[in-house]
Design a protein around this nucleic acid. Structure first.
Lengths: 343, 343
DNA sequence: AATTTGATGGAAAACATTTTCCAAAGTCAA
DNA sequence: TTGACTTTGGAAAATGTTTTCCATCAAATT
C-alpha cells in the first residue's frame, strides 16, 4: 500500500514547472531545457525520492519491459544456469525477467504464455517441454501461435520447424562425439540410459548415438537402451536393471550427467568398478560431474554461456533494430576418468 | 512489435456495446449485464483473441502484480528450491515473479530494489546478502527504507531487527542440534568449516555450534575453525588444511552441505575414511547429500516448503486483508552414515 | 523596423483500462 | 396514472506518463 504515490505532477509543482518539463529532464529528451530548471527538477526528484512509474510509461510506450522465461525446472542445474545467464544480461538493462516453472506440463506452459501475453511481454524464452506426441504437438502449435511476432526464442522445442528463432542445442552432435570417442577407445558393446520418454531431447541424444555408432558398423541394440528420466534416481534404477547384462557391455552412456552420476553411484554401490569393469559417460558437464568416483567423462554444453548469449541477443533485438547473429555455443568432450581404453 | 493491439474498444465495437460493458463482463462486476449482451461480448473476445492489457489495468488499479524475488544465486540448490516454492504458489495466481540474482553484491541488491520500486512491485522477497559489516549495514538500511510499507519478506537478512517481516531460518538451532548429536555420540574435539566471511548466516551457524558446545563444557577452538565459502570447492580446500590436525579431531561440521560434501570428497581422496577416521556433518539436506560416500548426516531445512509458505503468505496478505500467521518450517536431523559413535 | 530563428516551456491529447455517475426503460404497487 | 424501484447501459473522468502542437521571448538577420 504505497502511501499515495509520488507522481511527476508533484515533482512539477515543487520544481515550479510543468509535468512536460519534468518528463523532458527524466528522459533527457532532445527538446532543450534550461540548465536552471533542469537543476530544480533534479532537486525536486531527489527530495521527493521520485521514480517514474514504469507501468504508466509502459502504457504510453506499449512496452512492458518484461521478458518471460519458461523452463521445465529451475532447480535443475541445467536450466538454473541458463536462467542465470539470461538474468545477468537482461536485468541490468532495466528489464524484468519473469520466470515460469512448468514441470513439463502443457497446461502450465499454456498458462505461462497467456500470462505473458496479457502482460504484453516484450520477449519470451521458451525452454519448455518438447514432447514427441501428437496431442502435445497440437497444443504446442497453439502456444507458438500466441508467441509469434514477439521477440522470442524457442529452445530445441519440437521436431517441427516454426518460423521463430528455434535454437538447436547440438544434442545429436554431443552424442555423436561420445560415440566416436568410445569406439576409438575400443568399445563395441555400448548401452544407453534414455531420457524421459517422448522428450525430444531424449530422442535427439539417442538417435545421435545410434546414427554415429552405425557409421562404425555398430548397433545400439534395443535391449541395451534402458529407460531413464534425466534424474540421479533414474540413473540408479537403470544401473540395477543393467546388472544382468553387465558382462557383455563395456560402456554405457547416460542421456545426461545426472543419470550418469546416478549410474556410477549405484554401480559403486553394487561393487562394480568404473571404469575398470565398465565405462560411463554423460552429457552436460554439470558442476558436480568432476566430483564423482571416478570423475565423469562428459560433454560440456556451456549452458550458462548460452543464457548470456540469449540475453544479449534479445537485448539487441529489442533495442537496436539491427539483425544480430545466431546464437552459438561450442561443445567439448571433457575427458576425465570414467572411460577406460580397451585392448 | 504487436501488430496493433486489440483493445477493449475493438471488442465493444464488434459486440455492439460500450467499453464499459465489456469491462463489466471481463471482470464479472456487480453491475448487471444481460445474458444476451454478455454472450455477444464473450463471442467478440473469443473472435478477436482479446486479452485485457494488464499494464493498463495496473495503471488504473495501482497494482503491478509483480512480486520481486532477490536472491544471491539461483544456481545454488538452496535458493533454487526456495524460488521454485514461491513460484509454484504465486505464478498460478496471476502474479509475475521477477527474479534478481545479486551474487551478494550490494550494488546489485540496490539496483534490484530500485527496479522493483520503479515497477511498483506489489511485494518483494529479499533473501539477500546479510553481511555483518558496518558499510554494508548502512547500505542495507537504505535498501530496507525503500522496501518499507510494501508487502515484503526479509529472509534472515541482517542482525538488526527491521520492522518488516524478517524471517529467521533457525540457523542457530540447526547448529545446536548437531552439537548435541555429536556430543551424544562421544565426540569431544570438533572442528568447523565456516561459511563466507562476514555473512550473517555463517555467524549464526558458527555461534550456534559454539554456544551449544559450551553447554556441554566443550570449546569450539579458534584454530579448529577453518575458513570456507559455502561451496564444494571451499570444503575441499578446508579438508586439505584440516589434514594437520586430523589426529586430534574426531568430528567436523560443515557450515552447509556443499562444504561438507566437498570435505568428504577430498578426505576420501586423501585416503581418510569417513566416518571411521573422522565424522562429518552438514546443514541443509541438499538432494545430493544422500549420495556422498558415505551418505551425509545433516539437518534438513525444508527450503522448498519455506518458499511455498512465503508464497502463500504473500498471496494472502495481498488479496485478503486478514493478517496471516508467521511462516514456520520444521527442521530435522537426518541421520545417515557420516557420523560414527565413539567409545 | 520587420522578420526570422532558436531556445524554452506549457496545454492537451493519447495510451487501455476501470469507475463513478447518470439515463432510459420496464415493472410494480398504490 | 403516478411514483418508486430495478435492470441495463453509456459518457466521461481518472490513473501517470509521453508526445504533439503551440506560445512566448529574446536574439539575430534582413
Amino acid at each position: 500500500m504505497a502511501n499515495k504515490e509520488v507522481t511527476i505532477k508533484d515533482v512539477a509543482k515543487l520544481a515550479e514547472c510543468s509535468p512536460t518539463t519534468v518528463s523532458r529532464v527524466i528522459n533527457n529528451s532532445d527538446h532543450p531545457v534550461s540548465k536552471d530548471t533542469a537543476e530544480k527538477v533534479e532537486a525536486a526528484i531527489e527530495k521527493l525520492n521520485f521514480s517514474p512509474n514504469r507501468i504508466a510509461q509502459g502504457l504510453k510506450s506499449d512496452k512492458s519491459n518484461i521478458i518471460g522465461v519458461i523452463v521445465h525446472d529451475i532447480c535443475d542445474s541445467y536450466f538454473a544456469q541458463m536462467v542465470k545467464g539470461i538474468e545477468e544480461f537482461i536485468s541490468g538493462h532495466e528489464y524484468i525477467v519473469n520466470i515460469y516453472n512448468t514441470s513439463r506440463s502443457v497446461e502450465k506452459e499454456l498458462y505461462a504464455v497467456s500470462m505473458l501475453k496479457a502482460n504484453r511481454a516484450d520477449a519470451v524464452v521458451f525452454a519448455g517441454g518438447a514432447l514427441m506426441d501428437k496431442e502435445y504437438e497440437k497444443k504446442m502449435y497453439s502456444i507458438v501461435e500466441q508467441l509469434k511476432g514477439q521477440g522470442t526464442v524457442l529452445l530445441g522445442v519440437t521436431p517441427h520447424p516454426f518460423d521463430i528463432n528455434n535454437i538447436s542445442l547440438g544434442n545429436k552432435k554431443a552424442a555423436a562425439i561420445i560415440a566416436d570417442y568410445l569406439v576409438e577407445n575400443g568399445h563395441r558393446k555400448i548401452a544407453f540410459i534414455d531420457g524421459p520418454e517422448k522428450l525430444y531431447t531424449s530422442y535427439l541424444r539417442r538417435e545421435g548415438l545410434k546414427e554415429s555408432l552405425l557409421k562404425h558398423d555398430l548397433d545400439l541394440e534395443d535391449e541395451l537402451i534402458f529407460p531413464g528420466d534425466f534424474s540421479f534416481e533414474g540413473g540408479r534404477k537403470a544401473a540395477l536393471k543393467l546388472l544382468d547384462k553387465i558382462d557383455e557391455i563395456t560402456a554405457v552412456v547416460g542421456a545426461n550427467d545426472a543419470t550418469a552420476l546416478g549410474l556410477i553411484w549405484e554401480l559403486n554401490n553394487q561393487g562394480i568398478k568404473v571404469p575398470s569393469d565398465i565405462s560411463v559417460v554423460g552429457i552436460d558437464d554439470l558442476p558436480e560431474a568432476k566430483y564423482s568416483y571416478p570423475p565423469l567423462t562428459t560433454i560440456s554444453l556451456p549452458i550458462h554461456q548460452l543464457g548470456t548469449n540469449i540475453g544479449k541477443y534479445l537485448l539487441e533485438s529489442l533495442t537496436s533494430d539491427q539483425i544480430t547473429d545466431l546464437i552459438n555455443i561450442e561443445m567439448q568432450l571433457i575427458k576425465r576418468k570414467s572411460v577406460k581404453k580397451l585392448g
